[in-house]
């Protein structure tokens, strides 16, 4: 490995940008456009999907069968992106997603992975001691609910479909979506109407 790539990171980025621009591979405009496009993905997208699934049984079935199609159905572009799998939380089972090898994350529907998802502590501990990890997020599961940890190692990306909180009868999808945080759709937290 050449020591050139050990240059200070800001300088390395500047040098790579010069070369990619001069070779017509990535211009400053393309980079700006890409950043704007990436910034548009956020947990609000996943929240819309979850809220729709809570209020529309047909959509719920589609979401659990093919997450990417369900995202497309709400206008979220999934072309060229990894397949999206959806893990359904039930009274019996709570799902938690981790990527122990790197940081695979359902970016199309949740945006950039949060800092904690990429941290060694989360990557090492979520798979081995998920209850302790949940406790650090202030999450305590009901007695008797099993925890399934999904290690996102390969070609799929995984999001969690949380259980609809009690006390939300009659709420419309927008109001339900506003309850949801990114951690609810990874499984470190659970939504609450309280």
């Amino acid at each position: 490995m050449t020591p050139l790539i050990e240059a200070p990171s800001e300088r390395l980025l500047a040098g790579i940008k010069l070369l990619l621009a001069s070779k017509g591979i990535a211009t400053a405009e393309e980079i700006a456009e890409r950043m704007a496009q990436t910034d548009r993905a956020s947990p609000a997208q996943g929240a819309r999907m979850v809220a729709r699934a809570w209020t529309d049984p047909e959509y719920r079935a589609l979401l659990l069968r093919d997450g990417a199609q369900a995202a497309e159905a709400l206008g979220i572009t999934m072309r060229g992106l990894p397949p999206l799998g959806v893990l359904e939380n039930t009274v019996d089972t709570h799902n938690l997603v981790v990527c122990t090898l790197c940081s695979c994350y359902p970016r199309a529907v949740l945006g950039y992975p949060p800092f904690w998802f990429k941290s060694p502590g989360y990557r090492a501990r979520a798979i081995r001691d998920p209850r302790a990890v949940l406790a650090e997020f202030g999450t305590a599961l009901p007695d008797g609910q099993r925890i399934r940890v999904v290690d996102s190692t390969a070609d799929y990306r995984w999001m969690v479909l949380p259980q609809r909180p009690v006390g939300t009868d009659g709420w419309d999808a927008d109001r339900l979506a506003a309850l949801l945080r990114e951690g609810d759709m990874i499984g470190v937290t659970v939504p609450s109407a309280a």
Partner: peptide, 26 residues
């Protein structure tokens, strides 16, 4: 072919705190 495969956490770590581990494997 890629499979989702389930494992018993305590067969991997006796001190494991979860109930099931599911991983994508080729």
């Amino acid at each position: 072919a890629l499979y989702h495969v389930a494992f018993e956490p305590r067969s991997i770590w006796p001190d494991a705190g979860g109930d099931e581990i599911v991983v994508e494997l080729y």
